[in-house]
């Protein structure tokens, strides 16, 4: 797969990007490149979604098909399953670029690595977090999730999964140089996911109870803002360690 990919795609777009002040251009070029590459591997894009649906299927079988029971656990279950699906896709975030060497070229680019890695994370979210958020209501129906919370479920997942992608990318960058770092990645990242999970599920449950969801969504937004501000630097530092170390 990666062989075919290096042949077809320009190795790294941004190497050509000229002087300073071209931050936005570099960001866009990296984003476009990653989106193009991801579109070429459509099968891999579907995997997290299939995983999401599969995990959700396991619960009625494992616990009970009783709709009342399922409705009770649906918000938490959907969030946990989506979180695990997003986690599963993280390992490949930098892996293919690391294997074919284009990550090293990214480090040599004149633009700040933080901006370029942010572009990669945005691409990852567009093709993982967002589809998961859009798919969640469908699985909500299957879990007898009561009406009135579907929009909030999608919205909270969309905002929350962006934070998940950002935080998770730190772990992915730290473990990209380690062979079989996948399990380690989950060990590092899952504890950091807990606040997002709490406020995400909180939003859906508040919607179910007819309470205001603004507070929960505001907290999710605050988490996203904080991770947007801090995570790119940590990702960049981690990539440097993984590649130069």
């Amino acid at each position: 797969m990666s062989l075919q990919r290096t042949k077809a795609a320009p190795a790294v777009v941004i190497v050509e990007a000229p002087a300073q002040g071209s931050l936005w251009i570099a960001f866009k070029a990296t984003l476009e490149r990653d989106l193009t590459l991801m579109l070429r591997r459509r099968g891999e894009l579907l995997n997290p979604l299939v995983f999401f649906a599969l995990v959700v299927t396991l619960f009625p079988i494992g616990i009970s098909p009783d709709p009342d029971m399922l409705a009770l656990i649906a918000p938490g279950l959907l969030w946990v399953a989506a979180l695990l699906a997003a986690l599963l896709s993280l390992d490949s975030l930098f892996r293919t670029d690391y294997d074919d060497g284009s990550l090293e070229q990214l480090l040599l680019a004149p633009q700040p690595l933080a901006i370029l890695s942010l572009a990669k994370v945005v691409a990852h979210w567009l093709f993982t977090g967002l589809p998961l958020a859009l798919m969640a209501p469908l699985l909500g129906i299957m879990l007898a999730l009561p009406a009135g919370s579907y929009a909030i479920l999608s919205l909270s997942l969309a905002i929350g999964s962006a934070s998940l992608s950002l935080i998770g990318a730190i772990g992915a960058a730290l473990t990209v140089g380690i062979a079989r770092g996948g399990v380690l990645l989950s060990l590092l990242i899952l504890p950091l996911y807990i606040p997002v999970l709490i406020f995400g599920v909180g939003a859906v449950q508040a919607a179910l109870l007819g309470e205001g969801v603004a507070a929960h969504l505001a907290m999710l937004g605050a988490l996203l803002a904080a991770s947007l501000l801090l995570a790119p630097w940590a990702i960049a530092a981690s990539l440097r360690i993984s590649i130069n170390g």
């Binding site: 140089g177 590092l188 981690s238």
Partner: peptide
């Protein structure tokens, strides 16, 4: 590398 990676993780 291990030291620097662990440092980043500790700070995060």
């Amino acid at each position: 590398s291990g030291s620097r990676a662990a440092s980043v993780l500790a700070m995060v």
